[in-house]
Design a protein around this nucleic acid. Sequence first.
RNA 1: CGGAGCGUAGCUCAGCCUGGCUAGAGCACUUGCUUUGGGAGCAAGACGUCGCAGGUUCGAAUCCUGUCGCUCCGACCA
Length: 569
Amino acid sequence: MKWTKTLIPTLREAPSDAEILSHKLLLRAGLIRKLAGGVYTFLPLGLRALRKVERIIREEMDRAGAIEVLMPALQPTEIWEATGRAETAKDVLFKVKDGSGRQWFLSPTAEEVITTMAANEINSYRQLPKNFYQVSTKFRDEIRPRFGLMRAKEFIMKDAYSFDTTDENAMASYQKMYDAYKRIFDRCGVQNFPVEADTGVIGGSHSHEFMVPADTGENDVVFCEACGYAANIEKATSGIPKTAARDIGPAPEKFATPGVVTIEALSKAPYSVPANRQIKTLVYIADSKPVIILIRGDDQLNETKFAARTGAAASRPATPEECFATLGAKPGSLGAVVNVPAGVRVLADERLRGANDMTTGANEDGFHLKNVAIERDIKVTDWFDLRTVTAGEPCAKCGKSLKIRRAIEVGHVFKLGTKYSVALNATFLDADGARKPCVMGCYGIGVTRTLQAVIEQCNDKDGIVWPMHVAPYQVCITPLAVAADHPCMLLAEKIYAELTARGVEVILDDRDERPGVKFKDADLVGFPIRVSIGEKSLAKGKVEIKPRNGVMTVSKTEETVERVLALVK
RNA sequence: CGGAGCGUAGCUCAGCCUGGCUAGAGCACUUGCUUUGGGAGCAAGACGUCGCAGGUUCGAAUCCUGUCGCUCCGACCA
């Protein structure tokens, strides 16, 4: 490709609405342009890089035995109502009406569609296992699109859905995808690692997210360098010790704490109750019903864990009024020792099990109770792990110190079970003639997000540093004189033709620009290899070969093609 | 949805507070000359309904009201 024949609108300055580096580089290097918030056009170079990522994904999905299909983005609402997700996913669903007033959804994902297809077309265990995938545009009514392609209203996703006869076989399908994902992200040239992930309201037993480490990521990942444990903070646990038991008196004692409504205030004089000897009492509304949560004063509730354990479709903190209605006191004086209404669940964090000599709210504004032994004085409905892990806690597996870092979620593998196959009647006849629901898994990769994650990780002060396998072009030839009959241009054309004939993707910068402009643009766009042809070195029969991330070397003109080929491999 | 901020040339921004003449700069763009190994110089030129609508005023980019869009923080994120 000749530079002047395509469109590469590089920018010296980034538009002011770009915040993070990868977003600025996407714009500055002329890869994408914004049409509206969270909606982007891929320009020629951006599209080429995107296609490279897609190609890697297709090759690895095919290799793993998945088969490609293409499902509609426009989906009837009925199938979403059948699975209940018309309600539970309503906040992210794009809704459109056609001319006759019929409602449709724009696909944010395709479990309902693929399961409907499977229900119609799969009848026998002989047809299983199957894994269908597609690469397609998805829509999500993001409350707040962010960071360019990272969180967009419209984006490209690879989604795959496996159908198996048994749980065990479904695990094998899951493992295949897990392995394929590792290869995909490795081939894309980014550091990446799988972490255990929350399975959410959807249920299911297994879930891993594939993460690209980056400070601008939207996920916190807990990991142990010693044993390799890694989990999303929404799921992570640690080996932190339970609260030590002490010798205490026979019953809780009420004491006045006027105006004290925070853990911190109670930890100071004259009360001086350390946070780790306090029970924090929270009220949440889960599916319209109040639930009381007990957690140690120095811990933070993990709302994802809470939602997962209660199985609630929707939960939120109670308002002060709702707290008062439930327990008779305002937040800051809440406790679960007295006045807990019958039928209200009390969930306590495991770290409090066996704890005594604790202080908690008295359910009376301005008073607290001390001398509380949780198992003696509080009727706990269920014990769960509900706290959020913090950095430095001991790893539950090996005891070494846990670390936390930010990461971008680029892929997610998920064992679904039979929720969708049961709801949409995707069943098969087993060898023994019994009708059974397919056991499903689903597997997503944010394709456009992965592209941006590559840029977020692969760059320097001059611009993008493309990994070879996702670069829009592998080689940029930069003649410093571009008149059609000039020796520099003649040689550039010759090398261009030879490399192209050998299957290398080459762009020839035939712009009549000053050298500095061409070098700056080549660095900004980030082609892995630049071949510069200038008059001075050409007089000595030499050209320059400069890897984007390495040092420049000079090459005899006749050796250039072979040397570039060696670098491209 | 709550809080904050911003909409002026393709991009980055000044001007607004304290209303007034023809609305500015840098970069990018066009033409010419010079220059030619890391974002050139000179000269000439083109590009704006100052987001939109209404109001106040002799007069509005500037003040007021509304509205739309964008960004950030928070909430949200199967």
